Simulated scan of single mutants.
Amino acid sequence: MPKDSAGHLLPGPVSPTRPVPARIPRPEYVGRPAPARFTGSDIYPAAKIELIREAGRIAAEAIEAVGRGIRPGVTTEELDRIGHQFLIENDAYPSTLGYRGYPKSLCSSVNEVICHGIPDTTVLENGDIVNIDITAFKNGVHGDTNVTFIVGEASEAVTLLVERTKEALARGIKAVAPGRQVNVIGRTIESYAKRFGYGVVRDFTGHGVGEAFHSGLIVPHYDSAPQYDTVMEVGMVFTIEPMLTLGSTDWDMWADDWTVTTRDKSITAQFEHTLVVTERGAEVLTLP
C-alpha cells in the first residue's frame, strides 16, 4: 500500500488509460498537449445552460455511484473504474481523461492531497477522507463537480472539516448575485473558514466552465483578491470549489505534475458545484 511509515501517501502504480467507445464525442483537447485558447463567452443562453445542466447531472450521478463503492479496503483505481463506466454508459466523456495528459477519468484526492490526485493502487482505510472530482462532457459542454467522502468513521476534527467545507461552498453560492464582483465569493468563504482556524487554499480556484473545461475566468475562494473583479451577470456559468485545510496552505506537487499535497501533510477537504448566475442569485447545475 503506497503510504510511508507515518501514514502519508506515496505514489502508486497507475494502470493503463481506460478506453472510451468511438461513438462518444471527445473534447477538442483529447490527443493534444493542451486545450485550444477559449475565445467564447462565460455567459450562456437558456438552451445551452440546459445542456450544461444535463452534463452536470451525469457528473453528479457518477459521483453518487462512486460514493456507493467507497469503503475501507477499496482502491482509488477501483473508484475510477466505477466512475468511468457510469459516464460512458450515459454517453458522456470523462473530461479529465486526456486533459493536458491526465491519465484517468476522475481525480481521487486522499487525506493530505489538496486536488488532482491520480487514481492508483492506494487502498482506502477507515478514517481516511477522499475527494472525488468528476467532470462530464456531453453535447459539447462540460459539467464539473466534486464531493469529499469519509471512509468509515473519521476523527471529530476531520469530520467537522468535511462538514464545514461543504457549508463553505453553500455560503459561497449564496453570495452569488448579478452586479457583484466574483471576489465577494472568496470573501464570504474565508470569513466563514477563519472562524475555525482553517487554511483556505489560494492557488487553486473556481473557474468558468461550459463549452470549455476551464474558460479562463477565475473565481477565488479567499479574501483580499481585488484583482479578480469580473462582474457577475445573468447567464454566467462557473464553478465554486473551496479547499480548506486543518493546517497550512503551502503545497508541494508530486513528480506526476498533477498531485498537489499540503506541505505539512495536514488533512484537506473540498466540495464543488457548477452554477449559473440568475436574476435572484445562483442555480446549481450539478445536481443528481
Rank of each mutant, 00 (worst) to 15 (best):
M1D: 09
P2H: 07
S5V: 00
A6W: 03
G7I: 08
H8S: 00
L9A: 02
L9W: 01
P16R: 11
P19V: 09
P19T: 05
A22V: 14
R26D: 01
E28Y: 06
R32W: 08
A34T: 13
P35G: 06
S41T: 08
E50N: 05
R53C: 01
R57F: 00
I58C: 00
A62H: 08
I63Y: 11
E64I: 14
G67W: 12
R68N: 15
V74F: 15
T75M: 11
T75I: 11
H84V: 05
Q85L: 15
Q85N: 15
L87F: 14
E89Y: 11
E89P: 01
Y93Q: 05
S95N: 03
Y99I: 07
P103I: 13
K104W: 12
K104E: 01
S105Q: 04
L106N: 02
C107Q: 06
C107K: 00
S108P: 09
S109N: 04
I114P: 01
C115K: 09
I118S: 02
T121L: 14
N126E: 15
G127V: 05
I129G: 01
I132R: 02
I134M: 13
F137P: 06
F137S: 00
G140I: 06
V141D: 03
V141F: 04
V147I: 14
T148D: 10
F149W: 13
G152D: 08
E153M: 09
A154W: 11
A154I: 09
S155F: 01
E156C: 05
A157H: 06
V158K: 01
L160K: 12
L160M: 09
L161M: 04
R164G: 07
E167I: 01
E167P: 02
A168S: 15
L169Y: 07
L169C: 08
R171E: 04
R171Y: 05
G172Q: 05
V176P: 05
R180Y: 10
T188S: 11
S191W: 04
A193Q: 06
A193F: 11
R195T: 09
R195Q: 13
Y198N: 03
G199D: 05
G199R: 00
V200K: 00
V201H: 07
R202E: 13
G206V: 07
G206H: 04
H207A: 13
A212G: 04
H214Q: 10
H214L: 12
H214Y: 08
G216W: 07
I218W: 02
P220F: 08
H221C: 02
Y222F: 15
Y228V: 14
Y228Q: 13
E233M: 11
F238D: 01
T239E: 09
L244N: 05
G247F: 00
G247K: 03
T249A: 07
A255M: 14
D256T: 03
T262C: 09
K265H: 12
K265S: 02
I267N: 00
Q270N: 14
Q270C: 12
F271K: 02
V276C: 04
T278M: 10
R280F: 14
A282Y: 00
